[in-house]
Simulated assay, not measured.
Amino acid sequence: MIHRCRYAFALVAMWLLIAPAQAAGDDLKKVDIGVDWFINPNHGPLVVALERGYFAEAGLDVTLVIPQETTDNVTMVLDGRVAIGMSDQPRTQIEIANGSPLSVVGTLIPVPLNVVLAVEGGPIKTVDDIRGKRVGYADSEKTERDLLMIALAAQGITAKDITLVDVEFAMVPALLDGKVDVLTDVYRNFEPIQLELAGEKPLVFDVESGTMPTYSELVYIVNDALVEPDVVENFLTAVARGVKDIVDDPDAGWESFIAYDAKLDNELNKMAWKATVPLLAKEPARVNRQAFARFATFLVANKLVSAMPALQNYIYELEP
């Protein structure tokens, strides 16, 4: 069990300085790490750490696992398919409140990315124009839809005023093909760029701003019953090195990123990379407890959960 105390920031910093290589004769521990979506610039620190051998130097033989369905990122952690996964903070807290044995061990993206996206010149010109329209979403769980409705309620729009359409992974194509009029559950550092590259001008609405507390878009999560503290610590140490490399030299980081898979080398990812680098958590072993506490209060107040466990029950930190 991971102890609920301060993370070993000093150990991470020391590793950044000395980066001891794994002895040649030592066996690496095979570890599957789940991502939340197809590989994209949000996952840069993991890909760079993998490509530059930082996981191996930390004693881990890492394989990145892509979810088959849009909600598999959490179920892969719960059923033990991956040792560490990632999810957005709101869904993670809701899962925990509903009894899932999850804990948060670190942060990948410490700010919200979700926006509502439309095509400029189309039927949507203001938030009020969403009334009576088809709204595409990719999360087959209710989390993002519930948050959307809370945000739209502040504009006087109710669930009866819109038609929700599950478009799974095909977000922007559904918008371009006219299957939906507007998208939710899209990231400000990716889909608007994708729409722009398709020759359309994106119209972005940050409907969540001012309607709910800020939260971390992506956090690292583990299954309490299966967690291995040494794996978590070594994973976060390697990821910290990946983040530092990217921040210090984004162009070199990009070269390592596309070395993972030649298919990643495209204009969309290149533009998204530049937009994502400033958003990365510089200290991935840190968890913003204040943000989790504020959002827990918000979830209860809006009846998305009946109660939240105490923070120390699901935000775990490793002993020095």
Rank of each mutant, 00 (worst) to 15 (best):
Q93M: 14
E196S: 15
T107E: 09
E217F: 15
S256T: 12
P284Q: 05
A285V: 05
L218P: 02
L203Q: 10
V35F: 02
G136V: 00
N223E: 05
K274L: 06
D88T: 12
A301H: 11
V180I: 14
A170F: 08
W254M: 02
A151M: 10
V239D: 00
T237N: 01
V82D: 00
R145Q: 14
Q290Y: 03
N40M: 10
P250D: 11
L183H: 09
I130T: 09
P110E: 07
P278K: 13
G178W: 14
A21Q: 12
R52C: 08
P101Y: 00
A291C: 12
E267W: 00
I94Q: 05
Q194Y: 03
A293G: 05
V167K: 02
D249E: 13
R81K: 15
W37G: 00
L102D: 08
N114Q: 14
T276A: 07
K274T: 11
V104Y: 02
K303C: 08
A154Y: 02
V12Q: 07
V277L: 13
M1W: 11
K160I: 08
P112N: 14
D224S: 13
L17Y: 09
M1D: 14
Y316M: 15
N269E: 11
V77N: 13
E168T: 14
L28N: 03
A58K: 07
D177S: 15
L311E: 12
Y220V: 04
V127I: 15
D166H: 11
A13G: 10
D129K: 07
L176M: 15
A174E: 02
L108H: 05
P173T: 03
D261I: 05
Q93K: 01
P320N: 14
G136N: 12
N98Y: 13
I96F: 10
E217L: 11
E208S: 04
G178T: 06
V247S: 04
E200W: 02
L113E: 10
T184Y: 01
V239Y: 02
T297N: 08
F292K: 02
V65A: 05
L164G: 03
V247T: 11
A225I: 09
G136C: 04
A198E: 10
K142L: 10
T211L: 08
L60Y: 03
N114R: 04
V31G: 00
E317P: 03
A238W: 01
I315A: 07
Q22A: 15
G136E: 03
N302D: 11
V277S: 11
Y314F: 15
P67W: 00
N288R: 08
N302L: 06
I150L: 10
T70D: 09
L50V: 04
D251S: 11
S216E: 13
E255D: 12
V74N: 07
G80H: 02
D177T: 01
L16F: 01
L236S: 00
I39L: 12
M308W: 06
G199W: 06
S256L: 13
